[in-house]
Structure formats: structure tokens, C-alpha cells
Design a protein around this nucleic acid. Structure first.
Lengths: 165, 165
DNA sequence: CTGGACACGTGAACC
DNA sequence: TGGTTCACGTGTCCA
């Protein structure tokens, strides 16, 4: 009523068909809302450019977060509700579940390995073991950063991210 | 200019001191923004109630998603940036990393166990094994729901939400 | 019809 | 300084 009539006509909800609009066919907001109502018309050109810039940036940011949230949802099995907050909540529970299970599996591996070494002490295990036991020390979830200094970790994280992916 | 001057004066950014305002001391928005500018004053009482109701619900929803996102950030050990989208992105990478590591560990466990059984076939492994091998079949990430029926899970999620907060 | 969830534009703050 | 991120209020839609 007081602002411009931004009836974008967003057809369904947050996600139409739930996995199908990841990065393609995002033409609904760009066609309906921007080029018809805004985009340097019916506004004086001095402040319209910065407003349009801010608007476009905000639109991009919103879409990026929604895409990430959607990708998170498809990375997590067993989603309780198709909500944003529920998606994050289920992801948290799933992460904690995976962490606990990993601790369990590692304890079990250590148990099995120690038992095997105890039973057969002179065995040549370096030949047969598939290198997985040494590589699990360098995993990212075993480091547990102290989480108190948000500085100077950018370089480490960046090198790790590019090293893994 | 066209809306009411909602200068809430939010002191820093999305999160002040990053873990300290989980559910306590959220009095900044409730004191500054709501009770001074809105809350059934300087508006005609007919539409102000529904607007205030919608506003309050939206505020609650926003805070809930932010809390979940913050909890997700503290569940993920390595955060690249203190962004919302980056938080979700790092969570996705961490989840995929954990899933891959879990497959690796399970393969290794199967390898060790089959080797142990092959080497000592008549061993009483039911006594010594610490029950972990049977319980890993019933984990939640091994079930892989078909992800097609979003019904009849409302009660479960709701009772969990009220139990947590 | 009411409550909940969402996208939107906008001003402000940070870097 | 400009770009980026954020919270906010509002209108709309749907169960």
C-alpha cells in the first residue's frame, strides 16, 4: 500500500518440486518482479540505481542461501518437515549422529586391530592393511579447533577446503 | 522514510560473541523495536492487531531459524566464514566428508572382521565383540527413507521442538 | 478464518 | 567508498 506493488506472483512456495530448481530455471523472480516493476523506471534515476543495486544484491544473496539450504536438505536423509528451520535442525541431529557413529566405529576398529596384533604379533600388517588406518588421523573432524579465535583461520580453512574438494 | 522508523540499533552483526545469545538475553529486539514503535499505538486498532500478530510471528520465526543456524555452526568444526550461506555450505561439505569417512571405516571394519574370521574360524566372537557391529545396522543414516511422504510426521517434529526449546 | 511459512524491498552497519 | 550482509516489517499464500 505504501510501497510499490510488488506482486511477484510467486507461484508455489519456497521450493517448487523440491529438488528441481537448483541453479537452472530461476527465471521467475528475474522476469516477474524486476523487469516489470522496477529496473530504473518510475523512479528518479539518481537513487534508483543504488536502490536497484541493493535490491539485486539482496535478491542474489537470498537465492544463494536458499540454494545452500536446499542442498543441505538433499544431503541429509530423513527430513522431518519441509521447513527451513526444520531442515537445519535435522542437519544438526544428523551431524551429531554421524559424529557419534564415527567415534563408535573408530573404537571398534581400534579394538579389532589391537586384538589382531595381540593374537599375531609378528605379522606383516603393513603389506595387507589398506592404508586407511593412517589416513584417519588427518581427517577434519578429529582436530576440534578451540572455537575461540575467529581470526587467522581463513588461510588454513581455505587450503583445507581446496585440498579436500 | 515510508515505513515507521524501526531503528532497532542492533549493535553488531548477526551474532554478538558468536555463542552467547542462544536463548537468553534476547531483550534487544523486544525492548527497542517492539514496545517503543509498534505494539498497538499510533495505528488504528483494527489493522494494528493483525499486523502486530504477523510481525511478532515473523520475528519469532526469524529468531528460530537464526538459532538453528547458530547451532549448526557450532556443530560443524570448521567454519570458513561467519556467513549464513557459508555456514550451510560448510555443513554440507562436513556432512559429505563424514559420510565418506563412515563408508571407509565400515569397509575397513568388514575387512578386519572377515580376515579375523578367516584366520580363526571357530572363535567365540559373540562374547568378545562389544555389540557395536549389530547396532550399526539400526542407525538413522542407513535407512534412507523414500523422501516422498511429508505427512504424518508433524506430531513427531512438534513434540521434539517443544522438548528442546 | 486463523496461524505459519515464505519472498520481497529497504535502510542500516560493517569492511 | 562500494560491496556485502543483515534484520526488519509487510503482503501473500496455504493448510
Amino acid at each position: 500500500m505504501e510501497t510499490i506493488e510488488n506482486i511477484a506472483g510467486y507461484q508455489n512456495y519456497w521450493e517448487t518440486t523440491s529438488v528441481l530448481w537448483n541453479d537452472e530455471l530461476n527465471s521467475w523472480a528475474m522476469d516477474q518482479a524486476s523487469t516489470q516493476c522496477y529496473d530504473s523506471s518510475l523512479l528518479d534515476g539518481a537513487a534508483s540505481t543504488i536502490a536497484s543495486k541493493n535490491m539485486d544484491s539482496e535478491r542474489k544473496r537470498r537465492k544463494k542461501l536458499n540454494d545452500k539450504l536446499l542442498a543441505l536438505r538433499e544431503a541429509v536423509p530423513k527430513i522431518s518437515k519441509l521447513d527451513k528451520a526444520s531442515t537445519v535442525k535435522d542437519a544438526i541431529e544428523y551431524i551429531q549422529d554421524l559424529q557419534e557413529q564415527e567415534r563408535t566405529l573408530q573404537a571398534e576398529i581400534m579394538e579389532l586391530e589391537s586384538e589382531r596384533l595381540k593374537k599375531d604379533p609378528g605379522y606383516d600388517f603393513e603389506q595387507e592393511l589398506p592404508v586407511l588406518l593412517r589416513s584417519k588421523r588427518t581427517r577434519s573432524d578429529q582436530i576440534y579447533y578451540p572455537m575461540s579465535y575467529p581470526i587467522e583461520v581463513h588461510e588454513v580453512s581455505y587450503s583445507f577446503c581446496t585440498g579436500v574438494t
